[in-house]
């Protein structure tokens, strides 16, 4: 990764962010667009959860992460604090790996 690539990778990301917040976000938008923008974090973040739980070099993989995140879902559903959800996810994943389950 050269300096040019580092800058190229970041430049477009900055353009996206500034366009979203400074240009689009500064305008008065129709109610339906506002409501849609309010729902974007739920849709995007859940996709990111799926991607970082099941994503692998060959597309989709089911490994110890899935077991750990499933445990984290159960804990989050019981309204556990954020730290407990995170620690549960990591600990169950580590235990599953140590036990050789879905490594």
């Amino acid at each position: 990764m050269t300096w040019t690539l580092v800058l190229a990778l970041s430049a477009i990301a900055y353009v996206f962010k500034v366009t979203g917040l400074v240009i689009v976000g500064g305008r008065q938008l129709p109610a339906v667009v506002n409501r849609c923008l309010g729902l974007i974090p739920a849709a995007l973040v859940s996709a990111l959860i799926v991607n970082s739980t099941l994503g692998g070099d060959d597309g989709m993989v089911f490994d110890a992460r899935a077991i750990g995140v499933a445990a984290a879902i159960l804990v989050a559903a019981r309204r556990a604090p954020l730290v407990v959800v995170i620690v549960t996810g990591a600990a169950i994943t580590a235990l599953a790996r140590a036990a050789g389950i879905a490594v």
């Binding site: 729902l39 739920a42 849709a43 970082s52 995140v69 984290a72 996810g89 990591a90 790996r97």
Partner: peptide
Amino acid sequence: GLDAVFPALLLAIIANLLRQRPGFVAA
């Protein structure tokens, strides 16, 4: 198990959004 930390964090963050039906459907 550090590779499970990021999805677990995101899950904890959107947990409240998931308790509202539109947020749940979107997710």
